[in-house]
């Protein structure tokens, strides 16, 4: 099972189903839905949870319809944890 490092929210009502994000996604986790939105477009949806939060889909989206989240490494926290505790925790935070 893929481990999610990021996530996207697609505003399906402004999506026009151009599929440029489908093309741009390196994880191949965006697909065209089986139904249309209120404007009559076959919108796109995320179908798997392996999003890395790379933002490629949002960058090429002509509708500014995609919001992207990515789990950020907090450098300070990371350093503190590495120095203070065990490698067990750093594994969870890091890659």
């Amino acid at each position: 099972m893929a481990k999610a490092k990021g996530d996207i929210i697609i505003d399906v009502e402004i999506c026009k189903g151009c599929e440029l994000c489908v093309e741009a996604c390196p994880e191949n986790i965006i697909e065209t839905a089986k139904q249309v939105n209120n404007k009559g477009y076959l919108y796109v949806v995320k179908v798997e949870d392996s999003c890395t939060g790379c933002t490629n889909c949002a960058l090429v989206c002509p509708e500014a319809a995609i919001t992207v989240y990515r789990k950020v490494k907090k450098k300070k926290e990371l350093v503190t944890k590495i120095s203070n505790v065990t490698s067990d925790i750093t594994l969870k935070v890091g890659k």
């Binding site: 933002t55 002509p62 509708e63 989240y69």
Partner: peptide
Amino acid sequence: IKTEENLVYKKPEALKDTPFHYCPG
């Protein structure tokens, strides 16, 4: 993951809410 601090891309503020009239793509 979906928290404000993890937000890496969203529609810019200087873009109005009006959906584009442009053709798909």
